[in-house]
Computed example of a mutant assay.
Amino acid sequence: MRCHCGYDRSGLVVAQTLIEPGQDPATAIALIRQSRSPWALNNQTFEQYLSTGLDVAGLLAGLETRT
Rank of each mutant, 00 (worst) to 15 (best):
I29Y: 03
L54V: 13
G62R: 13
G62F: 05
T45V: 14
T52I: 11
D24E: 14
P25I: 00
L59A: 15
V56C: 12
A26W: 04
Y49K: 01
D55T: 15
T27H: 05
I29W: 08
A26Y: 02
D24H: 13
T45W: 03
T17Y: 12
H4A: 08
N43E: 01
A15P: 06
P38G: 00
R2V: 11
A15E: 06
A28L: 05
W39M: 09
I19F: 04
R66H: 10
R36T: 11
E64N: 09
C3L: 06
I32A: 00
L60P: 04
A15Q: 03
G6H: 06
R66S: 12
T45R: 10
T52Q: 13
R2A: 12
Y49E: 07
L63M: 14
L41E: 01
T52L: 15
V14Q: 02
L54H: 07
G58T: 09
T17K: 09
L60E: 13
T67M: 07
D8E: 14
E20S: 12
R9V: 08
A30N: 05
G53N: 07
D24M: 10
T45H: 07
G62C: 13
P25G: 03
L18I: 05
I32P: 05
G11T: 07
D55Y: 11
F46A: 03
I29D: 00
H4P: 00
A61L: 10
R66T: 13
L18H: 03
A40K: 02
D24N: 12
A30H: 06
Q34S: 10
Y7D: 02
L18S: 04
E64R: 12
C3N: 09
C3K: 05
A15M: 08
Q44N: 02
Y7A: 11
A30S: 08
R36E: 06
G62L: 11
L41H: 02
E20V: 12
R9S: 14
Q34M: 09
A57C: 06
W39L: 11
V13T: 10
L31W: 11
H4F: 05
D8C: 15
S10L: 12
T17R: 12
I29P: 01
E47R: 08
